[in-house]
Nucleic acid binder design. Structure first.
Lengths: 214, 214
DNA sequence: CCAGAATGGATAGTCAAGCTCTCCGTTATG
DNA sequence: CATAACGGAGAGCTTGACTATCCATTCTGG
């Protein structure tokens, strides 16, 4: 297919497709003459993935580029997921030295309790978590951080489901793409479910009150 | 205190504080003369909250403004949380008509299984969830959506902890602010824990492989 | 008490992200 | 063969979130 059809099938405007080509997010089509190209179903799928990562996942295009490069590279699923997590986490906001130290200590405890281990510790995901905990502390929300252990135990349960989603897929490529999608969309889906559940539980526990306004 | 100290204690540059004042995110200080003002500890706290919502929560300033207005208004905790969820969800990405219909059906099932009810159904949180599910469908990630029920059950468990965090606080104001923080930071914290857990579980289940690259 | 720093207020400028528009010379197509 | 579509490149646009510059007051330390 050519530009117009690619644009049509993916729902992405022609000008935007050209922009993605320029930025290297979409691989060039197969040349049929010095200045004509043909695109495949893979291009449509790729555009859909880009839309999912940006619109639903909220990733900046630069991060999408990094994730796509990781998918295309022949890394292991594990290391590809590492890239996804780094990009999904983004740059952690800075917090005060002492709050960060306190948060690291708290997290350390949880890590120990759960018997987690790292070959190369750290990573943006952890930096972000530390920043979020430190921020909660700075805002004086101690109740929230006191429950970290409970959240961690539930997070393990969720992660088990996550891994179940990707395990048992046929090809490595499938596993990688499913892993990326499960991680990025999974966060949104779980957050959405949590919000719905919060409303239900809070009505049960705290009692009525008006339903939230639209 | 005056500008310089407010800026210093909150870590927000003077120019930015002035900008927030202009935008109405920060209430004006108490006048001491026609063109001088004094700020209080409440202003410092407010600035910290703004930073938390933008930096950690990733909310645009306009949404922060809406959330702050809801906090300041004398709505019930329940309706304030509704505003937070609306703003946190943002504008749901558009998806195809049929994918959305399918996702709504799937979600309907989960809602029924869990016995959830709404006075005024819908809301941005649900729109977002539907969009995320529809996107997963469009990407062909059926495994993910098949597990929705499991995720929902775990989400309820998480929500129970969430509500436990805010329940039993002394004043209504405390409950509201804690609720906002727990919702916004809670999403980040849980996502972080989930990512850490994913790495642990995937190594156990899928076996080694290199650790993700930094 | 007074020089110099700080303040509040307003306006304009900056920067990055993510497109979108316009050309242009070439290529397909009815 | 006329006209529509294409690819490629460049400039332009919009939004969001600041940042910088002025300026007329108001503080403040020696």
């Amino acid at each position: 297919m050519r530009m117009a059809e690619l644009s049509d099938r993916s729902g992405v405007p022609v000008a935007t497709v050209k922009y993605y080509l320029r930025e290297g997010l979409l691989p060039p089509g197969e040349r049929t003459s010095p200045n004509q190209a043909r695109y495949s179903a893979a291009h449509v799928q790729r555009l859909r993935l880009i839309k999912a990562l940006t619109d639903v996942g909220g990733l900046p295009l630069a991060s999408v580029g990094a994730v796509l490069a990781a998918i295309d590279g022949d890394e292991t699923p594990h290391s590809t997921m590492g890239v996804v997590q780094e990009e999904l986490a983004g740059v952690a906001p800075k917090v005060s030295e002492e709050a960060a130290a306190w948060a690291s200590g708290l997290l350390e405890e949880v890590v120990r309790e759960n018997g987690w281990k790292w070959h190369e510790p750290g990573g943006a995901a952890m930096d972000n978590l530390v920043a979020a905990l430190a921020t909660a502390k700075e805002l004086g929300q101690d109740k929230l951080t006191e429950r970290l252990g409970e959240y961690a135990r539930l997070a393990v349960r969720v992660a088990e489901v996550d891994v179940g989603v990707v395990a048992g897929l046929a090809s490595v490529d499938k596993i990688i793409e499913a892993g990326v999608v499960a991680t990025v969309l999974g966060d949104r889906i779980f957050a959405g479910l949590r919000h719905l559940a919060q409303e239900q539980v809070s009505r049960e526990v705290l009692g009525g009150g008006a339903s939230p306004k639209r």
